[in-house]
Design a protein around this nucleic acid. Structure first.
Lengths: 157, 157
DNA sequence: TTTATTTATATGTATATACATATATGTAGT
DNA sequence: ACTACATATATGTATATACATATAAATAAA
């Protein structure tokens, strides 16, 4: 039941292992997104909406500014305010102008939002088990290699 | 100059290494996309457009059907035909109805498309070196772990 | 042959990202 | 106070994905 990447994308082979890492990381990310979407769908949330909602819960009962949300988001988003729009529309979050700095907004998760996340938490362990195809030691090694791989960041090509 | 994921996304810690792998893969993918976009931008191509163009070159001088393109694409796209639209508009590809099966289309890369890719090839080695922060052996190990990680696919939650 | 089903592609809609720019408020320099 | 600049957020545009559905051609069934 092994799933070799070369098979899945029907490519002969890679020029070198680095090329394969590039494709492999993107492919694995896409695969995870698919699974994650399946998990989120019954709750009517997109992945970015879910992530922002969890960021809001992380600060609760304190408010988040849009900048704080952007800071915490994985994929830098210039549209955090539009994602918050959706959450506010669904009444999962409240937004009002910040008293101290009237340029900023205070975004807070609502009771409805907290309840929804609590509901989702019940299934999250079960969901995460899909990703336990490797041992804990291997997962640590994988993280170490990914971190090191990104370390090349400073080339700044 | 190490770039620990916990620092970058300002999170305390992860519950377990599996959770970190999930975030790490997505984060690394986003990081790669950023770098890749920087590389593609001067040529006026988006990443999907670039990938499809390379698929077309891979078949040249034979034509590709939309289905073949979808098959070869990393991230299954229901909109391969719209990406081809853009390439045709930029005269990087030609599209015409297939003679043998008039439901299908024959998509072929143009001379202009081949020239563009040739131009880009010159810089691709230089670009890929950004991803050589690990040794070749480590890259192989990384691939092995990612493959194994995805092996859990069959849970089908 | 007529009808039904499958297949290949295209299109419409909602949501998302990336990028540029607009707007309003805050802050610093003079 | 006045001006210049920085900051926080919002908005517009182009492109992309995911999903559902439409259209037309091919194939199978009757």
């Amino acid at each position: 039941m092994s799933v070799r990447l070369e098979d899945e994308i029907k490519q002969k082979a890679f020029k070198n292992p680095y090329q394969k890492v590039i494709v492999n990381v993107l492919y694995t990310g896409g695969w995870m997104n698919l699974i994650q979407s399946g998990y989120l769908k019954p709750y009517g949330l997109s992945l970015p909406q879910y992530n922002v909602l969890r960021i809001l819960r992380g600060q609760y009962p304190n408010p988040c500014s849009i900048n704080l949300i952007i800071d915490r988001m994985l994929d830098k988003a210039s549209n955090a305010s539009r994602i918050v729009d959706k959450l506010v529309y669904k009444k999962l979050a409240d937004r009002k102008t910040c008293e101290k700095d009237r340029r900023a907004v205070d975004v807070v998760i609502t009771k409805k939002g907290l309840d929804l996340l609590a509901e989702m938490d019940k299934k999250s362990d079960q969901w995460e088990e899909q990703f336990h195809g490797i041992t804990e030691k291997q997962a640590e090694k994988l993280n170490e290699l990914l971190d090191k791989f990104r370390g090349s960041d400073f080339y700044n090509f």
